[in-house]
Nucleic acid binder design. Structure first.
Lengths: 194, 194
DNA sequence: GCCGTGAGTGAACGATGTTAACATCATGGG
DNA sequence: CCCATGATGTTAACATCGTTCACTCACGGC
């Protein structure tokens, strides 16, 4: 025990590593503890239970994804910013399917809620999408609409396709899947243009 | 033991009842067995394991949903057939959230796959959607496109919104949610019209 | 009459999340 | 300096889960 909070970070690190590799089923308390160099009951000194630990893993994931989104958007031309943001989301979902599933598809206590939390900009990923949608509407490229709800619909389309692939219902290579996404996104955008 | 296959049906009935009420977590083998009037190990005379039992529960759900869809579509005017089909899907998802989740969002062995199984018309729900999409394109109401992929995109939009609500990320009453769906569907359709 | 087969039972196994009871140990007030 | 205290571990154990094992039993064909 060196620094206060050291063990807690070790637990989260171990949990995240196991979750990324094997998903929720493989992430047992005993294995997480072993990865952090302690025993299972010691985890309960830092987290109320397994759910709270999963919560933390998801939160770290949101931090990583939103940072990638912000970075990608920052160096894209205005007309491509929203596209780039979603490309990052899709790539993240393909690279980290289980983590993405935990973040967006599982019932979690601390999940941001539409519309209240989104209106307050508390969703780190939703905020990026909403901002870019509003920008497109502001520039007159898209017709006037509720940016929050349009952002939600776009996100639902992305998460819907990802979930279908994750569930094994959409086969094909990563490349083929990204093509399906791109065409679906184009169709959706066509209905949003001014 | 009266009729051959009687116990098997009893098991499925009990499993489905528990799953509808409490979801996958509550559906333990012992509880299913008790509901069917037997003990847990006896289930393994009829199913290889819990997964296979869940498979059967999902299959029964698909049968019920596709029948409702066909019935609704049959008595709708041509211009409203696709809308009615999706309304049924949404209502089913709201009435049976856990079952809907199992059917569309969880990784199952026997899940129909896009595009191969859909092209062969083996997905009972996908077939209805695809048929109506193709009809709209055939009538010239919608622009020419791949009916399979457009159907998938529409389904992804629906399942994406449902998953977000199921995960507690979209709050509000059933009525409000159906309004969000309706507007999202309208936006999507606007991009598909000829 | 026997006996093989299909369906069911009780006991048990290994794994899981979690709790209880106890140990260790740095630290700061008397 | 000493020791009470709180934070942080540990080991043992509990309840529950899916599943397997060894056994029982009714019954239909030879």
């Amino acid at each position: 025990m060196k620094v206060r909070g050291e063990t807690r970070r070790e637990i989260v690190r171990a949990a995240r590593a196991i979750f990324r590799a094997e998903g929720g089923e493989g992430m047992t308390m005993r294995r997480v503890a072993a990865g952090a160099g302690i025993t299972a009951p010691a985890i309960y000194r830092h987290f109320a239970g397994r759910d709270e630990l999963l919560e933390e893993v998801a939160e770290v994931g949101f931090g990583a994804l939103s940072r990638r989104m912000e970075r990608a958007v920052a160096k894209a031309p205005p007309s491509r910013r929203l596209d780039r943001a979603f490309e990052v989301v899709l790539e993240f979902a393909l690279d980290e399917p289980r983590l993405s599933d935990l973040m967006f598809a599982s019932r979690r206590k601390g999940a941001r809620r539409f519309p209240e939390d989104f209106r307050r900009g508390e969703s780190p990923t939703g905020r990026v999408i909403e901002r870019e949608v509003a920008a497109l509407m502001g520039r007159g490229a898209w017709r006037q609409d509720d940016p929050l709800e349009v952002g939600l619909a776009l996100g639902a389309q992305a998460q819907g396709l990802v979930a279908l692939r994750r569930a094994g219902r959409v086969t094909g290579s990563r490349k083929v899947f990204l093509e399906i996404w791109r065409r679906s996104f184009e169709r959706l955008k066509r209905g949003l243009e001014a």
